[in-house]
């Protein structure tokens, strides 16, 4: 997908540049962008590495154990299919906590393990993905690092708005998901009935 988008951006950009007569600024931006990208990435390293280091301390202090104790009853309720599956539950909890703390790398393996363990329940897997889609995060460290690099007066001033909007976005995802599911299974039942009738 990104292969197509990337090529399309460049081709469309270059052609538009010729037609709008802005080929000079296009040429200039090719030269400067590559350089800016490297500077930008290196400017992020400080804050991101700092945050990852601090989170590592929390991880080594066993915070995931604490969160799993808190989250366990909730997880059993949300994913009834995992009731007797200790492995699935702990993978889900690790994934949600890792996402929450912004451990991008830590989240994917546990997510894969969680999905594998939930194999028998499509419903659980779907709900897991819907919860994932709201990107619930305690500290969006990369965004804050970017803001401070690009000259924001208070880089962390987006924190509380981000929490609020994450909550709203999770809520809307859950509502749409449950409405859609109900409609989907209703339609399927209707279709099956009709097929059965036609069969008779």
């Amino acid at each position: 997908m990104l292969n197509i988008i990337w090529a399309a951006l460049l081709i469309a950009g270059l052609i538009t540049g010729i037609f709008t007569g802005r080929i000079h600024s296009v040429a200039a931006s090719i030269m400067t962008s590559a350089d800016e990208a490297v500077k930008f990435a290196f400017g992020l390293i400080g804050a991101v590495a700092l945050w990852c280091g601090l989170i590592q301390i929390l991880e080594d202090a066993g915070v995931l154990k604490v969160t799993s104790k808190i989250l366990k009853p909730v997880i059993t309720k949300l994913f009834p299919g995992t009731k007797n599956n200790e492995k699935a539950q702990s993978a889900i909890i690790t994934n949600i906590s890792a996402n929450f703390l912004g451990l991008g790398n830590g989240a994917t393996p546990s997510g894969i393990e969680a999905v594998r363990e939930m194999n028998n329940s499509i419903k659980d897997i779907c709900l897991f993905l819907v919860i994932n889609s709201a990107g619930i995060q305690l500290i969006p460290s990369t965004v804050i690092a970017m803001r401070s690099e690009l000259g924001a007066s208070d880089p962390s001033d987006i924190l509380v708005p981000t929490w609020i909007v994450s909550g709203i976005s999770l809520l809307s995802a859950l509502i749409i998901y449950s409405v859609y599911r109900r409609a989907y299974y209703c339609m399927r039942a209707v279709r099956m009935k009709r097929k059965a009738k036609e069969g008779q």
Partner: peptide
């Protein structure tokens, strides 16, 4: 780990920032 994550991102960021830069500068 954090630093390595960003360093590994550098090549894709170069490609993407150039593409977006071209797309922006052209007026598209």
């Amino acid at each position: 780990n954090g630093a390595m994550t960003i360093v590994r991102l550098v090549p894709s960021l170069i490609g993407l920032i150039v593409a977006i830069g071209v797309f922006r500068a052209s007026g598209a």
